[in-house]
């Protein structure tokens, strides 16, 4: 960065000051319109409420007034919101370690030259990335139905009991399974690509020192791909807190999912079904703050180079 300024002076021609801003103008305007203004508007709405005068009939009887922090108090005191957060934390607690653990395992195995069928496995495991969450949930949702499930078919044939993966407790595992299925391949590719960038000499010297493949994986490979692991962890965390498509798609197939099962479903419910945009705005801000605190807190904790990396 420091060397560029003198170099352009040496070239005898400097870039007019307005040029970089002209290049950035489309992105900045769209970002302002689609990110900054909506975020600001959410903040504004979260501090407003509807005041009903008289019987609430006729024009002018419903006015938007300043509400102070009333919406935040209501949002934070809402047991349904905390229940949904708790459910999502439980769900994420199962999902993220399983998905990233499998992704890391598969990536290490793909990097193992003595394993066969590596190309086929890589493509097969990556394939679910091409399937949108709604369609993935649809496919698994049918496979969970006792009348369709292959597991149930075999169980019944063997005289076994009926199991219901769409029951109140099992549903956590069932939704987590859909997300593991959909997300493992992509994370595997990210980690595998990072593994391939590790200089081979590092392994050679370890092998000369008598390390086996497992030792090489634990002592060299995993530490070397730590930045990729940290990044996949943060993205998985953000995605988990925002889970919406999977439980929403499964709802028509089961009674075990309430309309406010996840925080996003709760906000959707408040905004578009109940029609309390103001409460929904306050709840969104609470969720956004929580996401930011968790992900930035984690990044600070590990002092990652995944974000804000200088070129």
């Amino acid at each position: 960065m420091a060397s560029a300024a003198p170099r352009s002076r040496r070239a005898g021609r400097t870039v007019p000051a307005r040029v970089p801003y002209a290049f950035l103008a489309p992105a900045i305007s769209l970002f302002t319109l689609m990110f900054l203004i909506p975020i600001g508007y959410t903040g504004y709405l979260s501090l407003r409420k509807i005041q009903v005068t008289g019987l609430g009939l006729g024009r002018g009887s419903r006015r938007e007034v300043h509400a102070g922090l009333a919406n935040y108090r209501e949002a934070l005191a809402d047991g349904e919101l905390w229940d949904s957060m708790l459910r999502v934390l439980l769900y994420g607690g199962m999902l993220v370690p399983t998905m990233l653990g499998l992704a890391l395992l598969f990536a290490l195995l793909l990097d193992e030259a003595r394993a066969r069928a590596r190309r086929f496995s890589r493509i097969a495991i990556f394939l679910p990335y091409a399937v949108p969450a709604v369609i993935a949930s649809l496919l698994w949702g049918f496979l969970y139905l006792p009348s369709v499930s292959p597991v149930q078919y075999l169980l019944t044939a063997a005289g076994g009991p009926e199991v219901n993966p769409l029951g109140p407790t099992a549903i956590f595992f069932s939704i987590a399974n859909i997300a593991v299925w959909g997300g493992t391949g992509f994370n595997m590719i990210v980690i595998y690509t990072a593994l391939r960038a590790v200089p081979q000499e590092l392994y050679e010297s370890a092998r000369i020192d008598g390390c086996g493949p497992v030792q090489v994986a634990l002592r060299i490979k995993i530490p070397m791909v730590l930045p990729a692991l940290i990044m996949t962890f943060v993205f998985s965390l953000i995605a988990t807190l925002q889970v919406f498509s999977e439980p929403t798609t499964l709802r028509p197939l089961t009674n075990a999912l309430s309309s406010s099962w996840s925080p996003l479903m709760k906000i959707y419910q408040d905004a578009f079904v109940t029609g309390d945009t103001y409460l929904a705005a306050a709840t969104s801000i609470v969720l956004a703050t929580l996401t930011l605190v968790l992900s930035l807190g984690f990044l600070r904790l590990v002092q990652s180079r995944a974000f804000g990396q200088e070129s």
Binding site: A27, F35, L241, Q242, A271, L287, A288
Partner: peptide
């Protein structure tokens, strides 16, 4: 750059609801 990048962290619903209203 940092302001643009911070957009990655914003939950989709925080944007979608006000985007709809606006």
């Amino acid at each position: 750059f940092n302001v643009l990048l911070a957009g990655v962290l914003v939950p989709s619903i925080v944007l979608a609801v006000p985007q709809y209203l606006l």
